[in-house]
Amino acid sequence: MSDINDLVKSILKQVNQSDGVTTTTDSHSEKQYGVEDYPLYEQHRDIIKTPSGKSLGEVTLDDIKNNRIDRKDLRITAEALKMQGDVAGDAGRKTLQMNFDRAAELTKIPDDRLLEMYNALRPYRSTKDELLEIAEELRSKYDATICANWFEEAAKYYESRKKLKGDK
């Protein structure tokens, strides 16, 4: 039964997250966006920013020509992904929203580290402890609670279903 309890706990956590019940003071996570706000590009372009805080109007060809745009700055932020998650949820697509919620947590992780994390989840790559260490890293370093739960859940099932390093 602990299996079921863990699952309920993890689902509850995700539901709480997706309902925007967070302790952050970020103004974006307070308002719930919906189908009527979509496309955000046409309706809310003013509040969407690049990771360095630039508004989209501040990103022009001229800026790029004059090296005023960092080559990695044209990326989605956690805030925009939460907004898209709201829209997806309002359109009745809860699993898509959950994916966007996980993704929002991953925006801060550097590309190379993210690729390593993905590779660690592939079959027979990691011991249970290695997966739990990544979960801890996700939680403490990146405040990525949902993804930490994801790794913990994988560690548990990989152990019982024999997908850990050495199980092959």
Binding site: L81, N99, L106, Y118, C147, W150, E153, A154
Partner: peptide
């Protein structure tokens, strides 16, 4: 892959 690695990869793309 496993379902969990593929699900994580899905979120990597969205991120």
């Amino acid at each position: 892959d496993t379902p969990w690695s593929k699900g994580f990869l899905a979120s990597c793309y969205a991120s």
